[in-house]
């Protein structure tokens, strides 16, 4: 946060966010039925992120977690719902105001290969944000880029090199430097360590934690790895088929998961730190987001599913302070 600004209210507030993709391309828009070709990537997602907090988002492929990160940053236009950043509704901003706000919210990507332009030097890549917003002199820009590279553990001597001359972990550091050089308040980390080897993963995680302290950052940390999310997050949101099924403080959610899906996820993670549990893996596959099941979306795989689950979508209920779950099992107070 910039000093002097109002420090009240959440930094990011998301309400009823929906994002549907129309898969019909070109002339097929006129020949095909809309309903059969609409992907429900996000279907009514609401949450707040407090200043200085890390909100972890966990879910399997196709649950909409990456779409969430991009829609929150308004890199994608939502189909419905609002995103407020520091009190300002993003949808109401004109192009100039939006561009100014871009400096304050950044993103770190998963794929260290696709996220850096192979034809641009490290200096050009990392310096882009400065060139757009602060517009320093070339000498000053070089100084600032060098300083930033040092912060993320790279040598300023690397400035004139191209991305293909770096390893995956180093590339991820370059991506982080590009995002942080504009001194943002909020960073979406979209699976930032998923493509990396275990020993490198730990380096990047430690770097992100260190930078969060140093720059006073707020993170939306998206991952499919429960252990990683559990480690870095203050709170965790569990997503399934475009919806948040459970949201709560990290430690509590991992120790006493409420939603049957969260429980199944936790059970399915193979761990080094536990005796081989006797568990029954969750059956079936995630249904297609083209036609999500009616009622509770998890009912097709849920061991506790009832007739009610098949027809009525559950509301979010509070099972403990700050711990919400969308499941009929918790109707009428905490179970």
């Amino acid at each position: 946060m910039t000093a002097g600004m109002a420090q009240t209210g959440p930094l990011v507030a998301v309400r009823g966010l929906r994002k549907h993709y129309d898969l019909r391309r070109g002339l097929r828009r006129f020949t095909e039925d809309a309903r059969a070709h609409t992907v429900h990537a996000l279907d009514g997602v609401s949450f707040d992120i407090a200043r200085g907090e890390t909100l972890g988002v966990i879910g399997e492929s196709g649950c909409g977690k990456s779409t969430l990160g991009r829609t929150v940053l308004r890199l994608l236009e939502p189909t419905a719902g609002t995103v407020s950043f520091d009190g300002a509704d993003l949808a109401g901003l004109d192009a100039a105001a939006m561009k100014a706000l871009r400096r304050r919210m950044q993103i770190v990507f998963q794929d260290p290969y696709a996220s850096l332009n192979p034809r641009r030097t490290v200096e050009q890549i990392v310096g882009l944000g400065l060139a757009i917003h602060a517009r320093p002199s070339p000498t000053r820009l070089r100084e600032l880029v060098a300083e930033m590279l040092g912060r993320v553990g790279l040598s300023p001597a690397h400035m004139q090199r191209y991305p293909h001359q770096f390893s995956g972990g180093q590339r991820q550091r370059i991506g982080i430097a590009r995002a942080l050089i504009v001194e943002p308040d909020f960073v979406v980390c979209d699976e930032p360590v998923s493509a990396l080897d275990v020993s490198i993963q730990a380096q990047i995680l430690a770097l992100l934690e260190e930078l969060k302290r140093a720059f006073d950052l707020t993170y939306l940390f998206i991952s499919h790895d429960l252990a990683v999310v559990g480690h870095i997050s203050d709170r965790i949101a569990v997503m399934y088929l475009g919806q948040i099924v459970e949201l709560g403080p990290a430690r509590r959610l991992l120790q006493t998961p409420a939603h049957p899906y969260t429980q199944a996820l936790l059970e399915a993670v193979p761990r080094v730190d536990a005796e081989a549990q006797d568990h029954r893996p969750l059956g079936g596959d995630v249904p297609s987001p083209l036609k999500p099941p009616p009622g509770c979306r998890f009912h097709t795989r849920c061991p506790h599913a009832t007739a009610q689950c098949r027809s009525i979508a559950p509301e979010h209920r509070t099972v403990a302070p700050g711990h919400h779950v969308a499941c009929h099992l918790y109707e009428g107070g905490p179970a």
Binding site: V198, A202, V269, D273
Partner: peptide
């Protein structure tokens, strides 16, 4: 390797 892995039991 073991020290660098986040653990679910002790996040």
């Amino acid at each position: 390797l073991l020290r660098s892995m986040p653990l679910l039991s002790d996040p």
